[in-house]
């Protein structure tokens, strides 16, 4: 007699390689974070941003710190986003000639990361502005980012962007056109991913005390949301990402005797 939890198989989508990349990111993050605590790193040394809200751009003036900050940011994106890339990478591999598959995934990843690096600058600037606004108003920054994230979560535009994340790529198969299409798919997928996830990413950025736990929670929530089927774009009360899937999961976690 064996006991098994009936988890939806879709939770098993992320490949081992993607899960390993994500796990490595999560292991590295605290190390990098603690190491950079004294520096003005972009996303991990939040106290610098929070305590001295002169902004991330000022922080960027120190080249070493910038490098470390950029590295931290990339590691964070890898940790949080790798599991979300299971579906597009599978779709990409299926539509690539066998000998081009690795190259296709590498080009996709390059395009995807490029978008997130650009988004990183925007996000840090936005989080600095929110921190300043919070101080000015005398409100907790968390309240402001939560409000922004909740409104965005409820908006049809966000669901539209999320639906586009599910869209299989249209790729050329041969030559330079195939390379460009794979890179382009990384870029467009990155854009839809950034549009979908950005407000939630502001949460850890503006809440330095809990940034790692918050990031982990948001990662799980976004992954749950991602495995749910696409639905029509409309205003919704589901303001927590993945809340519907979490409900289904909870209901289905029945112990079954086999």
């Amino acid at each position: 007699m064996t006991w098994r939890i009936a988890l939806p198989a879709v939770t098993r989508w992320p490949s081992r390689a993607l899960l390993a990349a994500s796990l490595a990111g999560w292991v590295l993050l605290p190390l990098l974070g603690h190491g950079a605590q004294s520096s003005a790193a972009l996303c991990l040394s939040y106290p610098t941003l929070a305590d001295a809200p002169r902004g991330a751009l000022a922080a960027l003036s120190v080249a070493d710190d910038t490098m470390l900050a950029a590295l931290s940011w990339i590691v964070m994106v890898v940790a949080m986003m790798s599991p979300l890339l299971a579906q597009p990478i599978v779709q990409l591999r299926l539509r690539s000639l066998t000998r081009r598959r690795r190259r296709a995934v590498a080009l996709f990843a390059a395009g995807y990361l490029a978008i997130w690096i650009v988004a990183g600058f925007a996000l840090v600037t936005a989080s600095a502005a929110i921190t300043r606004l919070a101080e000015h108003l005398g409100w907790p920054a968390l309240a402001i980012t939560l409000t922004i994230a909740a409104i965005w979560q409820a908006a049809p535009l966000r669901q539209s962007a999320l639906n586009r994340c599910h869209r299989p790529p249209d790729l050329s198969a041969f030559g330079l056109a195939a390379d460009l299409d794979c890179f382009g798919f990384g870029l467009t997928h990155g854009v839809w991913c950034v549009v979908t996830c950005t407000p939630w990413m502001l949460l850890p950025l503006t809440t330095p005390a809990f940034h790692l736990p918050l990031m982990l929670m948001i990662s799980i929530a976004l992954l749950l949301e991602r495995i749910a089927p696409a639905r029509p774009a409309a205003w919704t009360w589901r303001i927590l990402p993945g809340q519907k899937v979490a409900g289904v999961l909870l209901r289905s976690m029945q112990w079954s005797v086999r």
Partner: peptide, 12 residues
Amino acid sequence: TDLAWLDQPAGQ
């Protein structure tokens, strides 16, 4: 025989 097919989507 996959439980995801047999028993899901729970209650839907």
